[in-house]
Amino acid sequence: MRTVSAAETAPTTYPWAIHAEGLRVRAGRHLAVDGLDLALGAGVHGLLGPNGAGKTTLMRALATVLKPAGGRLALLGESVDSRADLRRVRRGLGYLPQQFGFYPRFTVREFVEYMAWLKEMPKTAVPGAAQRAIERVGLTAKADARMKALSGGMLRRAGIAQAIVNDPQVLLVDEPTVGLDPEQRLDFRELLRDVGVDSCVLVSTHLVEDVVAACTDVVMVNEGRLVYQGTPDDLVAQGSEGDPGDSPAERGYSALLRRHRAVTGR
């Protein structure tokens, strides 16, 4: 059992965990996110979009790794524009990048503990929190194995463990199910739903099926802009038999994308 701190039970003072208005973010010279409006609260939100839609750049900006080039971005009610002090917001963040680097000589436990320490968790809380996170992703048996000895799926799970070690209020995961087998995928969806009960979870993926199965909400971007936001059921309702795709959700996805491309003329 874990003691619940006063901070955890305090009511939130902001309407949205993630709030972007006219957000613009550069990836190199290219404006990968261009005038995006987005407001997300608690729940599991699936971020969909074709390759090059700006998903990864958006995730990096939300993770405060990239500085926005323009517009407004607030996380957990605090502005994270150019000169902001990011420490408080970052303590409430969990982030798993698409390709995450690690130190091959670290054990899983050392890796997760190191990340917990970087997230400025109290020193005494670090070992327990790391153990709990490792258990939640089902890596207990491998906790003391070196990172370089892990398979791709296990690495992914170690990455998820470091992302949730600080019980983040905003959890950002980029393509999390790549490398996971079907059973691990199911476990992972359950974990996301569990975290999403009282936190804001944003999962970027190219698997429409993952979104329908695990998410309470669908966010779709194209060309760096918001195309659509709604429930998975509503996404399904957007498609018709004539649209390309193997499932109702995929047909809904391609119908939305086709309509957006027709409107913008690209």
Binding site: G101, F102, W117, L118, K119
Partner: peptide, 18 residues
């Protein structure tokens, strides 16, 4: 040269102190 730079860059400890 730091393989975990993207992970570290999103943490509160990232910065001059490190």
């Amino acid at each position: 040269t730091d393989p975990a730079w993207e992970l570290i860059a999103s943490t509160p400890a990232a910065g001059l102190a490190i």
